[in-house]
Amino acid sequence: MTTYAFLLDLGRCIGCQACVAACKTGNELSPGVQYIHISEQTRGVFPALQSSIKNHRCYHCADAACVAVCPTGALYKEDGLTRLDASQCSGCAYCVDACPFNVPQLVNGRSNKCDGCAEVVKAGGQPWCVKTCPSNALMYGERETIMAEAHRRAEALRVRYPHAQVYGETQLGGLGVVMVLPDQPEQLDLPANPQIPAVLNTWQNVVQPASVGLLGFSLAFTGLAAIIARRNHKQEVAHLHVQNSAEETAAVQPDHANET
């Protein structure tokens, strides 16, 4: 199966926010909602400074925590990217809590995040951010091609930055946003080896099947049993009344006798 990926070259990115605006307009995002956040990262003391741009967005993890915890299936993997069908979303916010990068947000009570411009790409276009990036810091394509380009760029970047590297090849099963970093990930506020807690997988593997199975079994079993059990109980109660009235008849007569 072909999977797709973004390339995000943080060597080239100069922080112009063209991607942010293209994403907001192309995807008609509400005021206050952004799928991409650009911020500055500075290290060192004047004048020995280093700085890079943080480009915070959904990284489309292969082992996506949000997908693992989503109880309704609104979040799902497709073509290597993490899609969101908000019409299926209940707003439970488990994805908000689970994402190791703090990406999904609730908007109007539903989860909201980059879906890799699913509709645009299906219509044959490039994701809005990729199409507009003046620095050519963004690319979109088959993951293999993107990965090769990432390694090519990282290699070239090492002439300037000895620690330049590719990020996202293996992290979380491989990110759908493959990054070219000018420095070590820790320097750029990225976890070197992010982990999804194994416990997240119990949601879909344990909790959901257990719930469906146990509830289904309980309902079916008690439903059937109820018919039999209620009949039995009714018989016992009827029997009880017969007994009682017999005893009562026997007991009452002497009283009457006393009276008379």
Partner: peptide, 18 residues
Amino acid sequence: LTLLWSPLSPLAAGGLMR
């Protein structure tokens, strides 16, 4: 249940159920 069961999630979206 509306938060967890997708056929009911349209009821939940918007936050009322929450």
